Amino acid sequence: MSTTPSARPPAKTRAHISQELDQSRRNGPLRQIQIPPCPELLSRLRTAMAQAEPDLNEIARIAASDVAMSATLLRMANSPLHRDPQAQPCTTVGQAMTRLGLRETAALMTGFLLRNSMPVNNPHLARFWERSTKRAIACAFIARQLPGLSPDLAHTYGLFCHVGMPVLLQSVRGYGATMVEAAARIDRPFIATENANHRSDHAVVGALLIRAWDMAPELMSAIRLHHDFESLGDAAIEPEVHTLVAAGLVAEHLMRRHEALPEDMDWAANRDAALAWLHIDMGEVEAWDEQLRPLLDEA
């Protein structure tokens, strides 16, 4: 029997999500969650990038303040993806920034700072940040193919999409075992197992971190809803949120294809809805797969 529109649960609008987080924080399962503070350098980077004319000197100072971050920028700038075979290799942060461009520089720095603020030394999250980086690259690539979606916002969404997992792993006893169980089960979605065991899930916790770090509200909503595909297309939710969620599902599918993994449950069940929202078809997804592979190889 089909569900009538009147029988649908209320849409998780931005206000509803904030209320949900407040309630869970006060007297629900999120009381014990420890949200790490936003790294100071990341706050400075976001402030510099938020200006009408980004402060290039400040961004260069932030990049140069950490030797490992500088090395990351230089390595990427000198990679085959960016280096002209006839050009000399970059030897300074400034040269690397010029070759990479401001937006890619900021994206690489954001990923570096996030990864180092939340080290994941646990077998349950092996390759977590590597896969987050790939997801971010795939989301930004897809955004460049779509009208109206910011590649910067899409990159950040891909990077932070599953950030609730390491937070839960560090805060909740038994979450590692839950991850193993959730990955193994084929009878229900990953977050259903999280909620059954802990009365919360990584989508909720990820949204909590985004709000605590005072990041874009549409980012908070999209991360909260990135497994709630029944909400896709709901008129009460901002269109940009739907586009991020749908693009993220396509990005996850392309990333899994790159890794020779089978289709996951979310893609199998919600592919048609996501493609319809984005106004694309599988032919375009196949073309994107070919174009994206070199970028994911580099990541």
Rank of each mutant, 00 (worst) to 15 (best):
residue 199 R to D: 15
residue 136 A to V: 05
residue 110 T to D: 10
residue 98 T to N: 07
residue 217 P to D: 01
residue 6 S to C: 04
residue 221 S to H: 02
residue 162 H to S: 02
residue 121 N to R: 14
residue 205 V to T: 01
residue 185 R to V: 12
residue 47 T to K: 13
residue 236 A to P: 06
residue 102 L to D: 03
residue 256 R to E: 06
residue 93 V to E: 05
residue 182 A to S: 14
residue 129 W to H: 11
residue 178 T to H: 10
residue 206 G to M: 12
residue 283 G to M: 09
residue 169 L to H: 10
residue 190 F to S: 00
residue 201 D to R: 05
residue 22 D to C: 02
residue 152 D to W: 06
residue 273 A to H: 03
residue 112 F to W: 14
residue 2 S to P: 14
residue 35 I to Q: 04
residue 64 A to R: 05
residue 271 R to D: 00
residue 252 E to H: 02
residue 23 Q to F: 02
residue 233 G to R: 01
residue 184 A to R: 11
residue 77 A to H: 09
residue 84 D to M: 05
residue 280 I to K: 03
residue 1 M to I: 10
residue 84 D to F: 08
residue 171 S to G: 05
residue 34 Q to H: 12
residue 257 R to W: 04
residue 292 L to F: 00
residue 255 M to P: 05
residue 213 W to Q: 01
residue 162 H to Q: 07
residue 164 G to R: 08
residue 119 P to K: 12
residue 201 D to A: 13
residue 57 N to V: 08
residue 252 E to D: 13
residue 76 M to Y: 07
residue 178 T to M: 08
residue 28 G to V: 10
residue 160 F to Q: 00
residue 218 E to V: 13
residue 115 R to W: 09
residue 113 L to M: 14
residue 52 A to V: 12
residue 263 E to T: 08
residue 69 M to E: 01
residue 273 A to F: 02
residue 43 S to K: 03
residue 117 S to Y: 06
residue 36 P to G: 07
residue 138 A to Y: 03
residue 121 N to Q: 14
residue 263 E to G: 05
residue 8 R to Q: 13
residue 207 A to K: 02
residue 137 I to G: 02
